[in-house]
């Protein structure tokens, strides 16, 4: 669970309406205040949810981000099938699944 800054950036966006709307409109300046590495920033800008899952974003935070950016059922349709075999340390806290490689 080392992706603290990434998780924090996501929480910071969805918890505030103005920040969410700016991010939704392609203004990513909000990310500058967090210590994100290049790949984390790229995944957020691309809204690459499976990649964010693999980067250990907390599932609830990830779903909230989707809820404010995407249609209601988008996450179940577009993300859930792609994360089944990808480890996530929050999800696997009690029963780690193997690394799918």
């Amino acid at each position: 669970m080392s992706s603290y800054e990434l998780n924090k950036a996501i929480h910071h966006i969805y918890i505030d309406r103005d920040r969410t709307m700016a991010f939704r409109d392609g203004d990513h300046a909000v990310l500058d205040r967090f210590g994100l590495d290049e790949s984390e920033r790229a995944a957020l800008v691309a809204r690459d949810f499976p990649r964010l899952w693999a980067m250990d974003v907390h599932p609830v935070l990830l779903f909230h981000l989707s809820a404010v950016l995407n249609p209601r059922e988008w996450y179940v349709k577009e993300v859930v099938p792609k994360i089944r075999d990808i480890p996530n340390s929050w999800y696997d806290y009690y029963a780690p699944r193997g690394d799918a490689g």
């Binding site: 907390h58 599932p59 609830v60 935070l61 779903f63 996450y75 859930v80 994360i83 996530n88 999800y91």
Partner: peptide
């Protein structure tokens, strides 16, 4: 299940 692979 919220945000995880078993959602739904």
């Amino acid at each position: 299940e919220v945000g995880g692979p078993k959602m739904g």
